[in-house]
Amino acid sequence: MNEQEKQRIYERYLQATHRLGRLVTILTLAMLLAAPFVMGLILHAMPNLGAFWRGFLSIGIVYLISCVAEYLIYVPMLGAGGSYLAFITGNLINMKIPCAVTARDIVGAKSGTSENEIISTLSIATSSLVTILVLAVGVMLLIPLQPLLQSPVLLPAFDNVVPALFGAMACKYYRGNWRIALVPLLVMSLLFMLVPSLTGSTSFMIIPSGAIAIGLAYLFYRRDAAKLDSQEADK
């Protein structure tokens, strides 16, 4: 099969992914929005729309801004299929993003390539299925499992899933990228120490931290490219 034929297959796959992605997104949204009303019918207590709007104005706006940031930051990491799935299944920061990035690194896929699109979709679909399975089994065994999972002995372990994840990821990504990592790490550490209330908005702080890292990476990239050019010119 020649490259043109492969490109045609991939383009068709992408087009179909967008069609399917939009369809399942509409269906999921409809089901999620309908569920409270269906439950309201069963419980004979429909949602109080006045209280809903008051609540939305007080907390919904915050999450709307957070969702915009997440969308802009994560889509380039996830590709089309991965993004539809990740935004439907949730748990992006504590699972889907690290999972997709790790899978991409393991197979050595480059961003923006067909390989990255496929691997990212496979990774997010697999991790979502594992979560759905673990939660379904967990819910079925909730009564026997509850004392074990909520035992005070194990509680610090489950309270620290995210620090355990980010510690491991930090080692993996800082290694070999110290010149990019040092400044955002120092700036973020100082900021959080000087303004401790920011710890409640860590997901927002990803934006300036990421911007610093990307800015530095761009500077180094341009410098290295210029060096390479001058070395080639010398030859």
């Binding site: 990491m77 990035v101 980010f166 800082y174 000087l194 990421g210 890292a213």
Partner: peptide, 27 residues
């Protein structure tokens, strides 16, 4: 640069969280 930018973005993300743990401890 796309790959480098993705790695940098992830480094930024991890740095924000590690910084927050330090902030919680310190202040």
């Amino acid at each position: 640069f796309g790959d480098i930018a993705m790695t940098a973005m992830f480094i930024g993300l991890v740095s924000a969280y590690i910084g927050s743990y330090l902030g919680i401890f310190a202040s």
